[in-house]
Design a protein around this nucleic acid. Sequence first.
DNA 1: AATCCACAGGAAGCCCGGGAAC
DNA 2: GTTCCCGGGCTTCCTGTGGATT
Length: 420
Amino acid sequence: MLRLGERMTDNIFDGFLSRKTLFKNKEILRHDYQPQSLPHRKTEIETLSFNLVEALKGHIPSNMTLYGVTGAGKTAVTSFVCDELEKKGQELKRPVQSIMVNCRQIDTQYRVLSHIGNSLLESHEIDEIPFTGWPTDRVFGELIKRMDSRKGVFVIVLDEIDHLVRKAGDDLLYNLTSLNASLNHARACVIGISNDLKFTDFLDPRVRSRLGQLDVIFNPYDAEQLQDILRQRSNLSLNEDVLGDGVIALCAALAAQEHGDARCALDLLRVSAEKAEQSGSPMVEQHHVRSAQHQIESDQMTPIISKLPSQQKLVLSSILINEKNGLRNIQTGEVYAIYTQACRYVGQNALTQRRVSGLISSLDMLGLITARTISRGRYGRTKEINSCIPQNIDPVMIMVESEPHIEDVFSSNYKHQSRL
DNA sequence: AATCCACAGGAAGCCCGGGAAC
DNA sequence: GTTCCCGGGCTTCCTGTGGATT
């Protein structure tokens, strides 16, 4: 054992610090890093700028909706263009302010309005809109007041707008797209960003026509384009000659399989390089990419599973128990039967089947299971449920860590109740 | 063509907790 | 302290549905 004062020069970090690093700047390989240029998005940037330049001329830009799959560069392009717009606005003394709202995190009308309102606060002001308590129309009134007092053009960007509409309806969009009627000294335009081409089907026709004044489609990147992006970023972030043969191509190919997701490609390359560095390898090789792929999968899924609410864990356990018993394509009723037994076993009240059906759908949305609605003719309509947790993850262990009683659910035997 | 299954999933409403205003 | 508002979790009630079976 080391005693205080003994071998003072040794420190557990010394070894890592002296190890040769592969990175020049790791931040550049993060998907939220904003690069100086965005390859293969010239047309989209032009379309956005052509519209938003109106703000610099004192006019109101059209509202826009941007469509495209995850990692197609919608958010990156928008924040890039908005940054440039704000800079030019300052230069020309025509104030423009963009406000980004991620509707996956901020997903109710009240929260979006208060978030926008609070991001318009001057640094000396302290009267924040509370996160709950006010009537929504008061928050809206406060927002108008703040916009008018600050003047200029406001570009409100609603990222993942489809999520918001599905959850909270279109009241908010109705209010936001009619902001200009209430504003006296300021102007506003709304940019919606959606992964789902069809989300406007849920909208009131008036909102649809106001929001969809200009639609921009972002096509997914193909493998070649992903390679360009990776090359551009790796030149800036990695040391020279550290990438082995075919590493970029492999990252791009794997990400292209994931519907051309640039985020995925960048994460893959960064984690691969970290893996290589960790193992003391001077080069990133293809096997690092493979192991990075596994680690990313596991890193994404582990916290999702461990943070599931207790009832949701029981539902997931019921699905896993069915699978452990050798069943595939499990029906809602079968899951529910096991679930009620499991609840009894751990002494919890069982929720209704309607609720459990909803919980199954949300497990599907989280990507832990696939639940496909099918019709089995005379034998009714149901969901066909399968878990899709990768082999290298042990969901039971993750759940047991936060809720030990789950282990009892698995150790008991429900076999006799299921189809077997 | 009619029937029927096993649900899906929408709508309304209840309850609770957190917070503001009076 | 009371009243009002918002949001989340949940139940209850209900209508809708695709295709095998009759």
